[in-house]
Nucleic acid binder design. Structure first.
Lengths: 151, 151
DNA sequence: TATATTCTTGACAAGATTTGTCAAGAATAG
DNA sequence: CTATTCTTGACAAATCTTGTCAAGAATATA
């Protein structure tokens, strides 16, 4: 199970796009600057997100990327599986041949962990995370939450 | 968040030790053979498990390793954190300075994921996993479970 | 005591993966 | 026509994982 900066960058970038959902297209240069992600690296990640149907792009001046669906219809798990190829926790890719052709002692454990993590990531949309981020980051010292609309 | 074969080997080896809890000491050679783990590599992992107080060792003929506590008192999470040093999912090691000194948009998301995974791993003892492994691996075709004591 | 066994420690190396870069090209707005 | 921006393929450095090795220390047993 490998969740690397690749997946984290992709999610952060997608969250940025979700924050500016009303804007038309956002360039990699802007995103790179705002989120401190190396531009050419982001380029590479966005290839996968576009192939997965999560982003729409447009070339030329004023071009860039935007979400291809509303932010509440895009799950964190979809973004991660578009860029990470080693999220599976089992040694055998779920095939059950992890110990001399049959299941190793821990096979069910890793399978259960997989399901747990997948559920976690598939239960959360970009909108969910953004709302949560806003609320918690604005929690005051006295522990009263200051609720403000995202944006 | 990196769960590598290092952690998986360590858990598998510990499960083997738990299965033979009544035996005195088990050598790396035996473990390596039974679980198909490279001996010298296992050596390296067992250093960490011993330092973490999970294993007890004894040198000389008939020597080897055994669990330092009953298998129901050793959690999977303890084993993994003894050998894996990059299980944290946040970019900032939880410090909250992941984006120009303050929390990145996804900070809470990764923190929540961390907690989820940690709970999962800390809720399960070696004994739990072994019991589960026995039950499920003996599930028959007709979906009736054949319950047999571990051993 | 001698010997075989087994852990202990430190260091090293090959391979894979991640992370990041670059350049040439294609599309498009103004 | 020109500047902008994505698109694609390839490449390279850094890091990490995985695995190996050798010399040494402890210990059971004969």
């Amino acid at each position: 199970m490998h969740l690397t900066t690749k997946g984290k960058y992709a999610v952060t970038a997608a969250l940025d796009l979700a924050m500016h959902e009303n804007n038309d297209f956002i360039s990699i240069a802007d995103l790179s600057l705002r989120q401190s992600i190396p531009g050419p690296y982001l380029e590479q990640l966005f290839r996968n997100l576009r192939k997965a149907g999560i982003l729409t792009s447009h070339r030329g001046p004023g071009g860039g990327y935007k979400l291809s669906r509303p932010s509440n219809e895009i799950k964190i798990g979809q973004i991660i599986s578009a860029v990470e190829d080693r999220m599976d926790a089992t040694q055998c890719s779920g095939e059950g041949n992890c110990s001399a052709g049959s299941k190793c002692l821990a096979h069910n454990l890793w399978t259960d962990l997989n399901n747990q993590v997948q559920s976690f990531l598939m239960d959360r949309s970009l909108e969910d995370v953004l709302r949560d981020s806003n609320n918690k980051s604005l929690t005051l010292n006295n522990n009263k939450k200051l609720l403000i609309a995202a944006g």
